[in-house]
Write a protein that binds this DNA or RNA. Structure first.
Length: 1119
RNA sequence: GGGCGGGUAGCUCAGUUGGCUAGAGCAUUCGCUUUACAUGCGAAGGGUCCCGGGUUCGAGUCCCGGCCUGCCCACCA
């Protein structure tokens, strides 16, 4: 019961099929549920999607390759994915049919933080256990099981969607092959000085205790306050105070008094008691970080700055002495604003002109600190970057804070509690000047929703700011898509890389997003404090100076063999923060037990962190093809894969990951495939610079002449994002994600695909209102009815054509013709108007479909085929040939060619229904028509490997199109009259055409294959007469300037209906005449518009006026 | 704050270099169970092309300004 009993063709017949024409019947509606499983199975068995690199390398076929954007294994796919993959499949299938050796590489992404978070949540819900209740290995096993589950679901979804991926090559970003690529890439970047260890402020999630990327955060507005805190002013730290106050430790610098400041000309100083301790007031939203202050910042134009020269501030309770530094970043208070703009700065409202600079806890302060580093370090008793927090954001002196002083009471408190305590303490001591309510925007973590702490921590970075990275990404763009500025800057460096200028975005506007990102890029933090991901292959330990030489000796051979690289004390000049004391060893091969045993034995520890997910994603175009070892896995099938298919043809994705993913793939592909990198590979082990010579020699950098390699793809197609009915992006977290399988169940795969393709316009977003069926609990949308109806239309048109084409042959000479093939008989070129017209429409259809695909205009591709199938082929051609096709072998040939062309053109978007039709169509005997190249299937007799239709330009026929258009107008005019007079469809009426209207008669009497003419057929005419109608039951209408009549509409024509019809006609014509007159009375129009347009306008006016006169006359005759 | 989109029929959207009376699908109305298809056929109604200026013989389309809306990036624009 699962399969249609009508289908008798085995899915994959090894020999010419045994197909009996006599049992030919098909259900009257297309049933996707019957066809899809059978066809999927046929594809699975014949493996028509398995790409053969040998055909590319031998020059036998050109490559066409798409890498799937690997879906995250966190959840099942939704309609956004369905769109994404449908478009890829259309490209893959079309190019496969066009003869390209096509590889669509499937796979999934491990999605580090997202997956781990989902599993942590699940484990908590099910077992009430946290990650740390398990060993690392045990927890990873749990995630692995989860991943297996969703990877299976995703693969299943892609298969039911009909995706023609090369399933034998499916990858996962954490499988062995991808892991090997990750390690090799890491190793090379490490060796080449493009990976470094640094202390940086990262977005820290104190709850998950991990760094998160900017895009893993959200912003929210919270109600908080500006706190105004006073810091005492002091003299030089060298000038000791003789009478230390209270219990401050040791000696302190001499305090500055308001009296002194008054003498220095400090504005407003004499408002205070002369002998009293002078202070400055900082404004801050984060009092708790004051413990880590490194300096006080002032605007260089602040009038108070000069009076404070030679003074410092002392950090209350801590006792740290801080310098006052001038920097433009500091906002002047509103009262001191020097311009409208400064006064309008919202910060000016709250500013005091004194900024506490806390580099370890604020990004802006961090930047300011590095601008003024020398000045601050020289003048402070602190140590610059002072981190006062533990990873859980509690106050701690274990992570870089040494001069705790009298602030020990805050240790161990949470950041929230610390704020309260500090404010209270300042207040108690009289150092709190006040507070002001403030709405602050803060970042929160996507996952835990806790407030992000800018946190100074040790992280690994990829130096993407290096010209070898960011710059080569931009130079990959085609010239037309590069900004003028960028193009100029290229003039200076003519060392063109292999892939320079070969990558385009579609639509082109996205090139600007891409370029701009690289112009402003920051180094990429790649370490994540997670368990789920690629472990960082670096082993580290503290080394004493004396040990270094010994270790280098021990490691020397391995360094020479490039099984490891190392950097350590003093080895990395690019590291922004000194990492003196640590030796880092990067191990190339994770299975290198000899080395790892040695490292363990000598006190090295492997970095516990894993790599950012995007690191492995960035390698996707390489790792999936077996880089760096093209023959390492399944040597038979993978050999030469990289050479054959990288660079690929196109990447299809959504705009949101242009920066996250596209950019990084381009940088990595170009760097890792640079000719320098290739040379080094072949040199390995022979001439690597000696490891013991110097630390910098341990990190050989590619020569300056190394030319960047190709980009990973030549085209980047950015498609629209599917939103729900309320304009929200479809996503699992919003709960509005619709499973494509729900749509497939209700409408069928092809219907879903066709509708999505129709929606793939050039815009940013498309809305898809979806409703939940309360009965089934599944989502659906009437939007997909359009696709379902379309597939059904195709099915029925095919059913009709197949019935005709398979009919017992009788009078037809087809009976003697062989099966389709080289020896099939040829049909003479059709001479009938409708056939010539159909062939011309097919030619245009192929041309337009190809153009749309070439330009990634998927909606146009769908629309072209919709019109070709429904409007041209079904509405006009099939309806028009019904009376004649049975007796005309030539017309049968046209019918067959038309259907086959359409089926082939549609296969990429509706693969199942076309393949189901193909099962029958491919056995049909037809006479061959000149001008058609419909090459046979290459594998298993399946349509998916049959040739793309190639139609000769000779099929294009302007005359036929023009004449047919006239015919259509006439038919439509008659139908209009019929509808208005409610003439029953079956009633045959008579058309009266004056004998003088030769042009009209010529189309009416155009050559026909026997039977009645087209007008008779399509307008429901009994006959056409040149005689005038009898008085009475007839209606006149005008066509091409002649008065024509229809008679026998009814026993008596209703005068009221006719009157209404004429009145409307008169109104329309009057409006048209007014428009035309206005235009033609405009002297400028006559003088400047193209003469052709003017002539057309005049002709239209004349025609409209004549028609108007006639209509008025008729109306007068009625009353 | 910057950048990029969108605003056209009740709904979802087309509209290529400025030029026929601005189109399609769905929905609505009327008529058709015509032997491929009622998931269909024929026909109809329905639009201040967001607003205001400008260029032009002519603007949905080009330019300027504004309003609404979405996305992306943010000391770097």
């Amino acid at each position: 019961a699962s399969q249609s009993p009508m289908i008798t063709t085995p899915p994959n017949p090894p020999n010419p099929p045994t197909h009996s024409p006599s049992d030919f019947t098909l259900p009257s509606a297309y049933r996707p549920g019957d066809a899809e499983p059978r066809i999927t199975q046929a594809w699975d068995e014949a493996k028509p999607f398995h790409a053969d690199p040998a055909r590319v390398l031998s020059g036998e076929a050109k490559p066409y390759c798409i890498f799937i954007p690997p879906p995250n294994v966190t959840a099942a796919l939704h309609l956004g994915h369905a769109l994404n993959n449908t478009l890829q499949d259309i490209l893959a299938r079309a190019h496969r049919m066009m003869g390209f050796e096509t590889l669509w590489m499937p796979g999934t992404d491990h999605a580090g933080i997202a997956t781990q978070a989902v599993v942590e949540k699940r484990v908590w819900n099910e077992e009430r256990k946290r990650r740390h209740d398990f060993t690392r290995e045990a927890f990873i096993d749990k995630i692995q099981a989860f991943k297996d589950e969703y990877e299976k679901t995703i693969t299943e979804q892609l298969k039911v969607m009909g995706c023609s991926c090369d399933w034998d090559r499916q990858r996962f970003t954490m499988d062995d092959q991808c892991a090997a690529a990750v390690r090799e890439a890491f190793f090379r970047l490490f060796r080449d000085g493009l990976i470094y260890r640094g202390k940086r402020l990262v977005n820290w999630d104190p709850e998950l205790r991990t760094a998160v990327a900017d895009d893993e955060t959200d912003e929210i507005e919270i109600d908080t306050a500006f706190y105004y805190m006073r810091y005492p002013l002091v003299h030089s730290p060298d000038e000791q105070d003789e009478s230390p106050t209270s219990g401050q430790r040791g000696s302190r610098p001499r305090r500055a008094t308001w009296g002194e400041l008054a003498l220095r000309g400090y504005p407003g100083a004499n408002r205070n008691t002369p002998g009293e301790q002078a202070w400055v007031t900082v404004a801050t939203t984060r009092p708790e970080t004051y413990l880590g202050d490194a300096a006080i910042g002032m605007n260089p134009h602040d009038p108070r700055l000069k009076a404070l020269e030679g003074l410092w501030v002392e950090l209350p309770f801590v006792g740290r002495i801080l310098p006052i530094v001038a920097d433009d970043y500091v906002v002047l208070p509103k009262a001191m604003a020097r311009s409208e703009e400064e006064a309008n700065d919202p910060k000016a409202e709250y500013a005091t002109g004194f900024l506490k600079v806390t580099p370890a806890h604020d990004q802006n302060d961090y930047d300011l600190y590095f601008r003024r580093k020398e000045q601050i370090d020289r003048n402070s008793t602190g140590t610059g970057l002072i981190n006062v927090m533990a990873p859980d954001a509690s106050i701690s002196d274990k992570f870089g804070w040494t001069d705790v002083g009298d602030a020990g009471l805050f240790l161990g408190l949470s950041r929230e509690e610390t704020r309260k305590q500090i404010v209270a303490k300042f207040k108690a001591e009289g150092w709190l000047e006040g507070t002001k309510p403030y709405k602050q925007t803060v970042k929160i973590s996507d996952r835990s929703k806790s407030i992000i702490e800018p946190y100074l921590s040790d992280q690994w970075f990829v130096k993407v700011t290096d010209p070898r990275m960011a710059q080569t990404a931009n130079t990959a763009l085609v010239k037309e898509q590069r900004s003028a500025e960028q193009q100029r800057s290229r003039v200076s460096d003519e060392g063109q890389g292999a892939g320079d200028g070969s990558m385009s975005f579609h639509p082109a506007r996205y090139a600007r997003t891409f370029e701009h990102w690289h112009d402003n890029i920051r180094d990429w933090c790649i370490s994540r404090q997670l368990w789920w991901g690629h472990r960082i292959p670096v082993w580290s330990r503290d080394v004493h100076v004396g040990e270094i030489e010994f270790l280098r000796e021990e490691l020397g051979d391995w360094l020479k063999q490039t099984r490891i690289v190392a950097f350590g004390p003093g080895g990395h000049t690019d590291t922004p923060v000194d990492c003196r004391g640590l030796l880092h060893v990067c191990v190339r091969d994770s299975g290198d037990d000899q080395i790892t045993e040695f490292l363990k034995a000598h006190g090295f520890h492997q970095d516990p962190d894993v790599l950012d997910t995007w690191f492995s994603s960035a390698l996707w175009p390489l790792s999936t093809l077996g880089w760096p070892e093209p023959t390492a896995f399944n040597a038979e099938s993978n050999k030469g894969l990289l050479e054959a298919f990288n660079p690929s043809s196109v990447l299809c994705t959504a705009r949101e990951i242009i920066t996250l993913w596209v950019s990084r793939m381009v940088m990595f592909n170009r760097y890792l495939r640079s000719d320098g990198a290739t040379e080094r590979r072949s040199d390995e082990g022979k001439d690597t610079p000696s490891a013991s010579s110097s630390s910098s020699a341990q990190c050989p950098v590619p020569s300056a002449s190394a030319r960047p390699g190709p980009p990973p793809f030549h085209n980047v197609f950015i498609h629209a994002v599917i939103q729900d009915g309320d304009g929200r992006k479809m996503s699992k977290s919003l709960g509005n994600g619709v499973d494509p399988r729900d749509i497939i169940e209700s409408h069928g795969t092809d219907a879903m695909r066709f509708t999505l393709t129709q929606m793939a316009t050039n815009t940013q977003d498309v809305r898809l209102p979806v409703v939940l069926d309360p009965k089934t609990g599944k989502n659906s949308s009437t939007k997909f009815d359009a696709g379902r109806n379309f597939c059904n239309k195709l099915w029925n048109a095919s059913r009709f054509a197949l019935t005709i084409l398979r009919r017992p042959l009788g009078t037809s000479p087809l009976g003697t013709s062989p099966l389709r093939g080289e020896t099939a008989s040829r049909s003479d070129a059709p001479t009938q108007l409708i056939d010539r017209w159909m062939l011309s429409r097919l030619h245009a259809g192929v041309r337009d479909a190809e153009a749309a695909l070439a330009n990634y205009e998927f909606a146009n591709y769908a629309q072209t085929l919709y019109d070709l199938l429904w409007r041209d082929f079904c509405d006009w051609y099939i309806e028009g040939i019904k009376p004649t096709v049975d007796s005309s072998p030539r017309q049968r040939a046209v019918l067959a060619h038309a259907l086959e062309t359409i089926v082939r053109l549609l296969h990429p978007v509706t693969p199942f229904v076309t393949e189901a039709i193909w099962e029958h169509l491919r056995h049909v005997e037809i006479d061959r028509l000149d001008g058609f190249d419909l090459s046979p299937s290459r594998k298993g007799g399946l349509l998916c490997t049959a040739g793309w239709p190639r139609l000769a330009d000779s099929l294009h026929d302007d005359d036929a199109e023009r004449e047919f258009e006239r015919l259509r107008s006439l038919i439509t005019a008659i139908r209009e009259v019929r509808a208005q007079h409610n003439v029953h469809d079956k009633r045959k009426i008579t058309l009266h055409t004056p004998a003088a209207a030769a042009a009209i008669l010529s189309i009416i009497n155009a050559p026909s294959a026997g039977g009645g003419g087209l007008v008779q057929t399509l307008a429901g005419l009994e006959s056409v007469s040149t005689a005038a109608p009898e008085e009475g039951s007839c209606v006149s209408f005008r066509f091409e300037g002649h008065e024509l009549f229809l008679s026998n509409l009814a026993d008596a024509v209703d005068a009221g209906t006719e009157k209404a019809r004429l009145e409307k006609l008169i109104a329309d014509l009057t409006k048209s005449i007014t428009t035309m007159n206005g235009r033609l009375n405009n002297a400028g129009y006559i003088a400047k518009a193209p003469p052709k347009l003017v002539e057309e306008s005049k002709a239209q006016l004349a025609k409209a006026e004549a028609d108007l006169d006639a209509a008025r006359a008729q109306l007068a005759g009625l009353s």
